[in-house]
Design a protein around this nucleic acid. Sequence first.
DNA 1: TGATGTAAGTTAGGACTCCTAACTTGTCAA
DNA 2: TTGACAAGTTAGGAGTCCTAACTTACATCA
Lengths: 219, 219
Amino acid sequence: MTGKLPAYFDENSEPISARIATGLHKIGLAMKQQSWQQANGAGLSATQGQILAALVADGPLTGKELSERLGVTLPTISDSVRVLVEKALVTRSADPRHPRASLLTPTTEGAALGARARSWPEFMADAVADLSPEEQRAFFAGIVKMIRMLQEQGLVPITGMCVTCTHFRPNVRPGTSPHHCAFVDAPLSSEQLRIDCPEHELAAEPARRAVWEQFMRRG
Amino acid sequence: MTGKLPAYFDENSEPISARIATGLHKIGLAMKQQSWQQANGAGLSATQGQILAALVADGPLTGKELSERLGVTLPTISDSVRVLVEKALVTRSADPRHPRASLLTPTTEGAALGARARSWPEFMADAVADLSPEEQRAFFAGIVKMIRMLQEQGLVPITGMCVTCTHFRPNVRPGTSPHHCAFVDAPLSSEQLRIDCPEHELAAEPARRAVWEQFMRRG
DNA sequence: TGATGTAAGTTAGGACTCCTAACTTGTCAA
DNA sequence: TTGACAAGTTAGGAGTCCTAACTTACATCA
């Protein structure tokens, strides 16, 4: 039955991986526009919104930490933070951990805006909601693996994902919830993995690789 | 067997759709950085690279068409095109279809750069390549549906996808290649669907909706 | 007690992105 | 012939993002 039809597209189409890349590109377009619009609607710039969202999600952070999370350089952060301080949306306080660092904390008003900013990607969640649960699981699994590989290439900051966390124990029991989080001491299924956990603690390199390999070894 | 374990994460974790959204956000971060770096390495700005890539992929386009494809306004395109013309990477010629429009065509050098720019998302294809073929199919299916839904919301331009094309005939035969492309008169499987087909011709609204519904009706 | 180093930020400056608003200019229809 | 429409351009301004060069605090070690 294979070879029965001339299979025009097998020869003339780009490989599926390239088309996935193109598709993600289009989705990225929507995200960019959306976050721009949402931020402007809230009287913020896009990065200001992201900063507030990060502070609300992960607690007080230093400029350095923000620059890593958002994937921009320190001067860019410094600039946006200055504006946020002027607007009285965040305050600085000394960081006990680092000599010259200052922890950024949102004010009441800033926290409210940050909470709203966190929900900006929800327009995508809406689009995802129309997929069947099974499709969502498959989609999510692909995303987790893909992010991990992009992290290997140094293109995505390593934060928040279970699969790089000291507390993560992959495939420790049979059944639908094979993984375990040692932090909250609770079982965890593959589709419950976190992408942005505030308790994430980066595992050291050899352990990190071992955890990933054990995670990928299904069965 | 359900309910056997306390299911901490069922209660304390965000829904999977939200985590998918966050994940896509992270991937978007990598795309943004990557295209910035690649473009700079080629002596272009990010949008200039995108414009050249679009011209190489889809043939001569007008400014208007470019602005729709890239999701930016006409002035932004106009500005970048001016620079590209100064650099002798594209030329303008009259468009027979529209009175005041001008078709943009890459020069030899521009076409070479555009071809390189087209391959910039390949770093993602590499990350995708490590997924199993089955995972890739599922991932791709999710992307196609998601883009379609974002198009409905007007967040992604409607171009290049089979599922909005006059030539697309979904689910017309049983088996692994149920669809058909009337343009090249060839059968088509779900994972061969195109995301960015230059022959795409937008179907009129009632037909478009009907096609989508028939596409979603599996079996 | 200093000299040197390191890490976190800031400032300065420049290229690019991206928008809105206002204008120009061809074509077509009333 | 007048007016509407569509495609572009220009002007102006806010924001993004970088590199390079500084500042400042503490830590270390001679």
